[in-house]
């Protein structure tokens, strides 16, 4: 596998490159992709960062034998259920995923997978940051259970009194939801944030304002993302870390000991490829769910979403 990864690196070809732009019919991507803005914005490295749900036809990856998966666990699981046979019968085409997604992978195709991890050697704490940007897509899938939000916001109390605080809260309908019911998420989320940083002056910014920032060296980006259901490789994290910011996304401070390949994503952060971990697969449970609900699009199936979310909340039980 490492040889294929090295060959892929050498070729430098990625579907995100402009030369392949006309090959991809963006109208064939699922509609929810457009709700991913800005977290799903494209960027480039030689190991082809891409969303599996954008693979609307099997030959789309012919330019690149490696895919660095950017999907969240929902669309990743959904893709595996629909395509696991293709992955098995196809020529070896390494799929790089976050290590915590490993238990979703069927046992018989685990040899096709490796893991990616982000390393940022210089990080600051929330209390050291001169500027804090609180980011969240205002959507229930992204923020998770709002009752737990106050607890997840507790770290914000460490913010230095002198630090400036920006709020970047683009609103989205429920990305994987089917109804257009009125949502109270924004009100609840704002109330919780207000309670977490009482008396602090905050500045609301738009995505465009954020994307104009060039120097984020003393900045901490606090992402309200509950888990990796929507996306595992968030463009805003890439953007922030590329400009020196620290993000609460679990980036490692040191290279993993089992790192077998790495490349720099910016002068501040690196992508490391590590072997697939020893885990027990829960794929059978997911297949069972599909068999009992054969006609449902899993991405929009709330019981499938809950099944996965519960599994990931109890992720320790995945380890062997």
């Amino acid at each position: 596998m490492l040889e294929i990864i090295k060959a892929q690196y050498k070729s430098g070809r990625s579907l995100t490159q402009n030369k392949y732009y006309s090959y991809v019919n963006r109208d064939s991507w699922p509609k929810f992709f457009w709700d991913f803005y800005p977290i799903g914005q494209e960027y480039y490295h030689e190991l082809n960062p891409y969303f599996l749900f954008q693979s609307y036809r099997p030959d789309i990856y012919k330019f690149s034998r490696v895919i660095t998966v950017r999907d969240g666990y929902l669309t990743f699981a959904s893709y595996l259920i629909s395509h696991f046979k293709e992955i098995l019968t196809d020529q070896m085409r390494p799929i790089l995923i976050p290590p915590e997604f490993a238990p979703i992978v069927p046992t018989n195709i685990m040899d096709r997978f490796a893991c990616w991890q982000i390393v940022q050697k210089k990080q600051i704490s929330l209390s050291d940051a001169k500027k804090v940007i609180i980011f969240g897509l205002i959507s229930e899938e992204y923020l998770g259970n709002l009752e737990d939000l106050p607890e997840r916001l507790l770290p914000l109390r460490q913010i230095n009194p002198e630090a400036s605080i920006d709020l970047l809260l683009p609103m989205r309908k429920d990305i994987f939801g089917k109804n257009n019911k009125e949502s109270m998420v924004i009100y609840h989320a704002l109330n919780h944030i207000k309670d977490a940083i009482p008396g602090k002056k905050v500045n609301f910014i738009k995505v465009e304002n954020f994307l104009e920032l060039s120097n984020l060296k003393n900045t901490y980006v606090f992402d309200l993302n509950f888990d990796k259901m929507v996306v595992s490789d968030n463009y805003l994290h890439y953007f922030s870390q590329s400009r020196g910011a620290t993000v609460n996304n679990g980036s490692l401070l040191h290279s993993p000991k089992d790192s077998m390949f790495h490349l720099d994503l910016s002068i501040f952060h690196e992508l490391h490829i590590t072997p697939f971990p020893q885990v027990k697969s829960v794929f059978a449970e997911l297949i069972f769910h599909k068999k009992t609900n054969p006609h449902v699009d899993l991405n929009f199936d709330t019981s499938f979403q809950n099944l996965l979310r519960n599994m990931f909340q109890e992720n320790l039980s995945f380890s062997e």
Binding site: N18, Y21, Y43, Y44, H45, S242, D264
Partner: peptide, 13 residues
């Protein structure tokens, strides 16, 4: 010549 974000960084790197 159109580039994707990160492409020129990777070239320099």
């Amino acid at each position: 010549i159109w580039e994707t974000e990160g492409e020129y960084f990777r070239k320099l790197n």
